[in-house]
Nucleic acid binder design. Structure first.
Lengths: 191, 191
DNA sequence: CCATGAATAGACCGGTCGATCTACTGGACC
DNA sequence: GGTCCAGTAGATCGACCGGTCTATTCATGG
């Protein structure tokens, strides 16, 4: 009986609580809040992550993995047509920004809040954006778009804009607005 | 000789230093940093602004005034053609995000960093976005766009996306990408 | 000449920050 | 049974947080 869920170790509990609290309260949350929310001893944080910065970076890494998987799942569920797969991303965004607890893009918030350009979190967010960019670019290439790199930049810009507007002007239905523009980007490839 | 610059009072000095430091270090900057950077006494802050929150709100108000004036100036300098006036905004954005000290949109950063939804800063940023939205919508109406309100939302989304991408992917030349999309929005009005 | 009021300097408050440390617990493994 | 070690609990550290306070300076105007 060594199996069973074993209630998840302190590392996992801390990561989960940090993922939640760094989003709702920002990366400026105090360590104590993370520890008490996860019922993890102070010392365990430093043994597992070396410090707050390491924990934040790991949280971003974990969230980025999940979010990238969500992108892939969304596109996979949309079938084999690259156009449908890309537009499905904006339909998914509409649901994301409509969630009552939506508070904007976690990665942009982290980049803006972490003033130190050498903070390890920045490298994580940078790589995440590259991965999403690559994801989009591949679909655009499959679509036969003449400039998949530029178009991927534009789609990424629409995604960032949607998440920003979703946080600051939720009543403007930004995902729908962005989807219309995305269609025009894709039409340039179908021409 | 009551005139002369008189070196600006403590209120102005503090506002100026806070405008600079809340941008470079975020709204989480300590009060002491703002006071020592402006050579203002601690007490003066509380007499003029009531506290840190009041100071931050006033800084956002001041910055919003200046930025709105910059929008108006950019459009005025672009002549009388609404299309030229709107596209000039994105040319101006290209220069903004190219500045070496560019650190993203001040207002979005504030909204993301101020976790308390009742913080007075949020009201300031909300009104600022409404003003810019109105500015864009008026030009779109003058252009004869069939849906100036939706189009203004889309332009605002492109602006937010440009500022976000400029902070996180500066090498992607987001303003140029956004301008191309903006042209398509405007073309819907010229049709 | 002196009263007024804005601004300054800076001590001080309780609280919190991230980080380090010691002491202890409990279960796994040999 | 004894060893080992991850994890817990919590005291403690210096630094800083936002905010309040007293005392002082200084230019102005009656």
């Amino acid at each position: 009986m060594t199996s069973r869920a074993t209630t998840a170790g302190p590392r996992e509990r801390l990561l989960e609580a940090a993922k939640r609290l760094t989003y709702t309260r920002g990366v400026g949350v105090g360590i104590d809040a993370l520890l008490s929310a996860s019922n993890v001893a102070r010392r365990s944080l430093y043994e597992h992550f070396g410090g707050k910065d390491g924990l934040i970076a790991e949280v971003l890494r974990l969230a980025a993995e999940e979010d990238e998987a969500t992108y892939r799942r969304t596109m996979r569920a949309a079938g084999g047509n690259p156009r449908d797969r890309l537009l499905a991303v904006f339909d998914a965004l509409a649901k994301v920004v409509a969630r009552p607890d939506f508070r904007g893009c976690r990665y942009l918030a982290a980049d803006l809040a972490l003033a130190d350009p050498d903070h390890p979190g920045h490298a994580v967010t940078r790589e995440y954006r590259q991965r999403v960019h690559h994801l989009l670019e591949r679909e655009l290439a499959a679509l036969g778009h003449p400039r998949p790199d530029l178009a991927a930049d534009q789609l990424l810009l629409l995604i960032d804009g949607t998440l920003a507007a979703g946080a600051t002007r939720p009543d403007s239905r930004p995902a729908a607005s962005a989807r219309l523009l995305a269609e025009q980007i894709l039409d340039a490839g179908a021409a």
